[in-house]
Design a protein around this nucleic acid. Structure first.
Length: 575
DNA sequence: GCCGTTTTCGGCCCGACTGTTTTCAGTCG
């Protein structure tokens, strides 16, 4: 049982407790435990194996009660408490909560008073006017429920950060184009660099919030408005996403940006910290009584709380506030630190353009080097290279390097890790290359132990400098294959093998948690784009965002090194 | 249910918008 499954069950418990109108703080305890577990980099099962319930209780938000629930979940795979709760409230009733504007109070009345058990029954009841039997439900509420259901059905849930970002930037541009807008920024999970995004959040400041709200809800991308007020408006976009616009005065722009960037758990902890210092934090500023101490800038807010500035990517309540209090927030890796890109394809295999064009595009980005890493022969769908084709490509790259000034194209390969952990090309071929990435592209559904052995064996090859997209996941399409990342990370540290952070928006593999674990274990990371065309090179920013979420610094990342030192890293293992 | 440089008991972040209300509950983030 993995962490996110445990987290999901605890979250389910919290939802049912909400429907039972249990103590609100008890509900939040379950929610908090669930979200803390979700962000844990170590496996809960391992923690429990090592120290039992006592070590579970060392995790923030887990006490005697919840550790008992977790113990049962880990040992039996289910929770009798959850099953007990489900006796009174079926799953189809819980689903109604996912409709915008329908909360726990309404759901429980729908179920108890009107015997409505599902979203379908709710829609039909709404259309027949049956809902008017409930106190406080009239025409407008019914209309909003019907629209909420329509939207819920179309909602394809979370969006990749790349898609959400282009949408958000278009909205931002529209908002900024108005004369009465002084400044506007993207906040929310997009600013924190999460791999998938639910809503788009934009903060604006200017002289006429009312006019801006009117303009916002009538943008061409907007399908319908959910709310419109002096400081806050919410809309549903044509692509099914929600977008929120907040408007504050310039004296509150920093504190509002902080509040609106979240995460919610981070905000709660910041506000608690403020209380302990006799202060109050809200989106309008930091206050002692009625006296405002900060708010114009985010850095001012952190400063009056006695904290170092916390980069948005770290704001997940996973130790960043404690670190900021100790002045121990590292300088995270930045896009401008990147000196090269070590994973890309050319028209020798499934890339779209010749090597020279990839090199030219990379040079335009200010890089000093790239590695061309086409597929090896086993990846037949991509037209993978055999030893002969590798020879040919090497000669072409040598010739190209003679023509290029202040730039180097490294001769590389993305060699397949075969089922038994051996590689798809002989060592003699690999030895002639500057850089070898080894990746799994087949037999994804092996048992975890076999898959782990397979990758460990590949790492033992002295020519393998990088393991490509180490978990193989495709966000929204394919689960990571079963692999013990803890073991892979330990072995990577031992063998001087770097792990890839593949920046392709549907990969982001390693993810943020594994990056953090790798960094803590002294493993080097290569942040690559896996580009198949020049435009893909711009995906580097998503890899950087994920690396920052994983607390990585410039020193953790090999493609921030000079060419000389990068080649030194490669030869260290080859010795 | 969790937690403790004021607490092992009594707290638990803070504020906006909507709809149906004559002062607020429900929902959301």
């Amino acid at each position: 049982m993995d962490n996110s499954s445990v987290s999901k069950l605890l979250d389910d418990i919290s939802v049912l407790l909400e429907l039972k109108e249990e103590n609100a703080f008890k509900i939040r305890s379950y929610q908090k435990a669930a979200s803390n577990i979700e962000r844990l980099s170590e496996s809960l099962a391992d923690i429990y194996k090592k120290g039992g319930r006592r070590s579970l209780e060392e995790i923030d938000g887990i006490g005697a009660g919840i550790s008992e629930r977790i113990e049962e979940i880990l040992t039996t795979g289910k929770s009798s408490y959850l099953e007990e709760l489900h006796k009174d409230i079926p799953k189809s009733v819980v689903e109604m909560l996912r409709i915008q504007g329908v909360g726990p109070k309404l759901v429980i009345r729908l179920y108890k008073d009107l015997k409505i058990k599902s979203v379908e029954e709710l829609l039909s009841a709404a259309k027949k006017g049956i809902l008017k039997k409930l106190d406080g439900v009239r025409e407008k509420k019914i209309e909003s429920i019907i629209k909420g259901i329509e939207n819920y059905r179309k909602l394809d849930r979370k969006h990749l950060i790349s898609d959400a970002l282009s949408y958000a930037q278009a909205l931002l541009k529209e908002i900024k184009s108005h004369d009465y807008v002084v400044d506007a920024v993207i906040c929310g999970s997009l600013r924190r660099g999460k791999e998938t995004i639910g809503d788009i959040d934009i903060l604006a400041t200017g002289i006429n919030p009312k006019k801006l709200a009117d303009a916002f809800v009538s943008l061409p991308q907007v399908k319908r408005a959910i709310a419109k007020g002096e400081t806050k408006s919410s809309v549903v976009l044509e692509n099914g996403m929600n977008a929120d616009l907040r408007m504050v005065g310039p004296e509150s722009f920093g504190s509002a940006a902080h509040y609106f960037t979240g995460s919610q758990q981070h905000n709660i902890k910041i506000r608690k910290l403020a209380i302990s210092k006799g202060l109050k934090v809200s989106e309008y500023g930091v206050f002692r009584g009625n006296k405002k101490l900060a708010g114009r800038t985010e850095s001012g807010l952190f400063k009056v709380l006695g904290l170092q500035f916390i980069p948005p990517e770290l704001r997940e309540d996973s130790g960043e506030i404690e670190a900021a209090a100790r002045k121990a927030i590292p300088r995270l890796v930045e896009l401008s630190d990147v000196k090269g890109d070590l994973h890309m394809h050319s028209d020798y295999t499934d890339g779209e353009v010749p090597i020279e064009e990839m090199a030219a595009a990379a040079k335009l980005l200010g890089y000093d080097y790239i590695a061309i890493t086409d597929h090896s022969k086993s990846t037949t769908v991509a037209g993978g290279l055999d030893a002969r084709s590798v020879e040919k490509q090497m000669r072409e790259i040598d010739a190209l390097n003679k023509r290029l000034k202040d730039f180097r194209v490294l001769k590389g390969i993305e060699v397949d890790i075969l089922k038994d952990g051996s590689l798809d090309l002989d060592d003699a071929v690999l030895a002639g290359l500057d850089l070898v990435i080894a990746s799994v592209h087949s037999h994804f559904s092996m048992p975890g132990t076999a898959m782990t052995e397979r990758v460990l064996k590949a790492m033992h090859n002295r020519y393998v400098s990088i393991i490509g997209h180490p978990t193989g996941r495709l966000i929204g399409k394919r689960q990571p294959y079963e692999i013990d990342m803890g073991a892979v990370i330990k072995e990577a540290a031992k063998t001087h093998t770097a792990l890839e952070l593949n920046s392709f928006p549907d990969r982001l593999d390693l993810n943020d948690l594994n990056c953090r674990l790798a960094g803590e274990n002294g493993v080097r990371i290569a942040i690559n784009t896996d580009s198949h065309r020049p435009a893909d090179l711009s995906y580097m920013k998503f890899g950087i965002g994920t690396a920052r979420r994983g607390w990585l610094t410039k020193n953790d990342v090999i493609n921030t090194l000079s060419l000389e030192r990068l080649l030194g890293f490669v030869s260290l293992k080859r010795k």
